[in-house]
Design a protein around this nucleic acid. Structure first.
Lengths: 165, 165
DNA sequence: GCTTGCCTTCGAGCGCGCTCGAATCTCTAC
DNA sequence: GTAGAGATTCGAGCGCGCTCGAAGGCAAGC
């Protein structure tokens, strides 16, 4: 089950109301399936990013990846789980810098859990704010679409094109 | 009524359910209030961007701004309305490149309205997709927050820290 | 008159997140 | 043995959207 497939399926399962089901949440939590060791090309497909990006993440210290006898990267379950987390956080807009901080905390041990939780809580709020912004922009866009022709509103009938048309 | 104030107020009025009220939509459509001519500093506050950004938008051909006798920019209602539109679209993630295309169509006259409408429709879909992505990421983040301590799920009790903790 | 402050233009610089190219290595297939 | 695919490292480059700095202009206040 590739992550992009999973996201696609989850997106498909997510109704217009925007309330994810329990199944979707469980699917996103990646419970169960351990896809096993894979090459960088396979991992890239699995995570829906480019091999270049995977190497970049590794260089950035976000994930450690072992090598086989040929020196090629081997993505095991540990690396893949972290990368699923990382790509998901990136998709939701968390900067790489913040992720570097977060993984540093993870690597620093269990005592950093409170701070990690704080980061997640703050990120949650950021995502919520962003969703609201987008919801408003969406409403404005839909309003503009619905009233097209009267570019500043329904009570204005422009003779020529308006500036914000 | 500054645009940022308006957005703040609209955000405050927007409940957890994420369904904007008619009032909010009307407010976002900027019906009524014409703030009159203002300086670049005033416009920047009004639009919640920097003067640098306003000059950049003008250089990018997104808006035309006249000058007073001293050569200073004068933001009239036409410019301000367009900038409200532009900043809103930017906020919702439309690339400057696309906005350049859009305003070029506006300046090309009424016959380009169908294409403009297409752009808005496509943008609407893009914003919807993005909202869904963020909603899913939010759900995953909230799940992780709720199950914190069991970093890969509730059925796993890690002895040491997990890679995706 | 002179300082202060905000404005102007212009081009350059920057932070982010990749993205790419070059040179080289390893494995597989023919 | 040799061609080809795909991997490696490294540093550089790029597209985006600003952001800044330098050098100078204009108007008001002391």
């Amino acid at each position: 089950m590739a992550t992009d497939d999973l996201m696609s399926r989850a997106l498909a399962a997510l109704g217009e109301d925007g309330a994810p089901s329990v199944e979707v949440i469980h699917a996103l939590a990646d419970l169960g399936a351990t896809p096993g060791p894979m090459t960088i090309a396979e991992a890239a497909v699995h995570l829906d990013v480019s091999p270049h990006t995977l190497r970049y993440y590794e260089r950035a210290g976000l994930v450690q990846v072992s090598r086989d006898s040929a020196g090629h990267r081997v993505y095991d379950d540990v690396a893949l789980r972290r990368l699923v987390f990382l790509t998901r956080m990136r998709l939701s807009g968390m900067p790489v810098r913040d992720l570097q901080h977060y993984v540093a905390l993870v690597d620093a041990g269990k005592r950093t859990e409170p701070e990690r939780l704080d980061i997640l809580l703050e990120h949650r709020d950021t995502v919520r704010r962003r969703i609201r912004e987008l919801t408003l922009s969406l409403a404005a866009t839909e309003y503009k679409i619905a009233t097209y022709g009267g570019s500043t509103g329904p009570d204005v009938e422009p003779v020529t094109d308006q500036a914000d048309g």
